[in-house]
């Protein structure tokens, strides 16, 4: 597996490399490309007085030192290269570099931010989550702690799916990733009571139906996967019902209104992201959803 790491020379960047190394470890053609993106200088933002002031060569020297530090963070056995480029927009630049590299995904280190109670990814992650043609993986310090507790190895994939047609896509893709990494797969669905007209009457039926639908689906794909359907009054409460183990990686699918081969994270997935304390990935759909 080939991954592009969006790197900044700080704790986040180190965390991104840690997650990326864990993801590619043991896969075929395991390789990383560490991307350092710089803002493009526009002539309409002329620096006066004095112009460049030697800034670009000092910056270039600094970037070389950051590149060397980044390479030292990657464990042995993973082919790693570094690329630095000035780009007009960080997200677009990362996508461009990822496509050039033929990457399967982009990895970012991040921090959880809460705005008015809602989880929101950083601006760059957010832009990627709404436009990337490849998977986007994200970590936070808390989620990396669970990975470290498992000795830096991913131990299980958990694919989040809805009870609607898109599920097949996400399960299929997750299964391919699980197979590539030699990992067990768990399929999880969250049911919010608020989505049901009358939870007291419908809940048990709905849960049973969903469970059998997913078991049928994984069966038809020839997968051995654990299926978990959990419910709560809202998505947050439902998500809290799931149990996690050290080394878990969560995978979510793109919203159904995403363009084919592009990420577009839906409001549900965004809500779930905010609840998770394990590293996570968001995968694009390969074909237009019906």
């Amino acid at each position: 597996m080939k991954l592009l790491v969006g790197y900044t020379a700080d704790q986040r960047g180190a965390e991104a490399i840690e997650l990326a190394s864990a993801l590619v470890a043991g896969t075929r053609d395991a390789s990383l490309r560490i991307a350092i993106v710089l803002p493009a200088a526009t002539p309409f933002n002329a620096v006066y007085p004095g112009g460049d002031h030697g800034f670009s060569s000092i910056l270039s020297d600094q970037v070389d030192r950051w590149a060397a530090q980044a390479l030292a963070l990657v464990p042995e056995g993973i082919a790693t290269s570094v690329v630095a480029r000035s780009v007009p927009s960080v997200a677009e630049g990362l996508i461009g570099l990822g496509e050039e590299f033929g990457a399967h995904g982009i990895v970012l280190g991040g921090r959880k931010r809460h705005r008015a109670g809602f989880f929101s990814p950083g601006a760059i992650a957010n832009a990627l989550l709404h436009s990337s043609p490849m998977a986007v993986f994200m970590s936070s310090p808390a989620s990396l702690a669970t990975l470290r507790a498992a000795g830096g190895k991913i131990t299980r994939l958990t694919a989040f799916v809805g009870d609607r047609p898109g599920a097949r896509e996400v399960i299929g893709l997750s299964a391919r990733i699980a197979a590539a990494c030699g990992l067990p797969l768990r399929v999880a669905t969250l049911v919010s009571h608020m989505d049901l007209a009358d939870p007291r009457l419908e809940l048990d039926d709905h849960l049973a139906q969903t469970r059998s639908y997913l078991q049928e689906l994984t069966g038809s794909l020839g997968l051995e996967a654990v299926v978990e359907v959990v419910s709560g009054r809202g998505l947050d409460e439902a998500a809290a019902q799931l149990s996690w183990q050290d080394g878990d990686l969560a995978l979510l699918g793109s919203a159904r209104l995403a363009a084919p081969r592009r990420l577009f994270i839906g409001p549900k997935a965004q809500r779930i992201l905010g609840q998770l304390n394990v590293p996570m990935g968001v995968v694009p759909t390969l074909e237009a959803a019906s």
Binding site: P39, A40, A41, S60, V63, D64, A67, S86, V87
Partner: peptide
């Protein structure tokens, strides 16, 4: 005296060439 050009050729300058 200015920093040596990066050996790795990593850093491409962000000058937008020929637009003004």
């Amino acid at each position: 005296s200015p920093p040596a050009r990066s050996e790795s050729g990593l850093h491409e300058k962000g000058l937008s060439k020929g637009t003004v």
